[in-house]
Amino acid sequence: MVDMDRADGRLLTALQRDADQSLEALGEAVGLSRNACWRRIRRLEEAGVIRGRVALCDPAALGLGLSVFIAVRTERHDAEWLELFARAVREIPEILGAYRTSGDTDYVLRARVHDVTAYDRLYQRLIRRVPLKDISASFVMEELKETSALPVDTL
């Protein structure tokens, strides 16, 4: 963990809202000079706090309106199976997140697809590549909150 003060937190909050802002606008928003913002951003990048800057795309505008959570159970828990599974989920672009979990479900996957037919194609590709005990999908009916912003103001 990196030592951060409130100004760093305000800066990260502002960058997570809009990383395309000018240094002048950032400085005004967080109460720092342009140069102070630049130095802090560089320090946070070098420390690995800021990993990169990306463009956020609207899934519906790209025809990816269906969000799916996929629960996966396996009978195998060896390194060879895990490598096979990890490679498969990394190589299937519709899978946006993959998480090993506690409880009855071994892994939860988060995916974006066009529709149920597109989900079925994803499902077929996954089960062809990796032996699974059970797989089930939950289709998101309503998205109440979706963000990539971390709660840095709570630190």
Rank of each mutant, 00 (worst) to 15 (best):
R129V: 02
R39H: 07
D5G: 14
R90D: 02
P93I: 12
I95F: 05
E91M: 00
R10G: 03
R39K: 06
R43Q: 10
L26R: 06
C37Y: 01
V54D: 09
I127V: 15
D153H: 09
R6K: 12
D58E: 14
P151A: 10
G9K: 12
L11C: 04
R76W: 08
A71Q: 11
K133E: 05
V30T: 01
A118K: 03
L82Y: 11
R125Y: 10
V72R: 01
D58F: 06
L122V: 01
G65K: 12
L144Q: 12
G9V: 13
A98G: 00
W81K: 07
R42D: 06
K145W: 11
T101Q: 09
L82Q: 11
N35F: 04
P131M: 00
Y99Q: 11
R40S: 08
W38D: 04
D153R: 06
Q124G: 04
T147W: 09
T154W: 10
V2D: 03
V116C: 07
R6P: 00
L44D: 01
G48R: 10
Q124T: 01
D8T: 13
D18E: 10
D134E: 15
L122G: 03
A86V: 11
G48F: 05
L144C: 04
D120T: 15
A71W: 00
Q16G: 07
V30I: 08
V49Q: 13
D153W: 06
R121C: 03
F139T: 02
M1L: 08
T13W: 05
G27S: 10
C37R: 01
G31L: 11
R53T: 14
E75A: 13
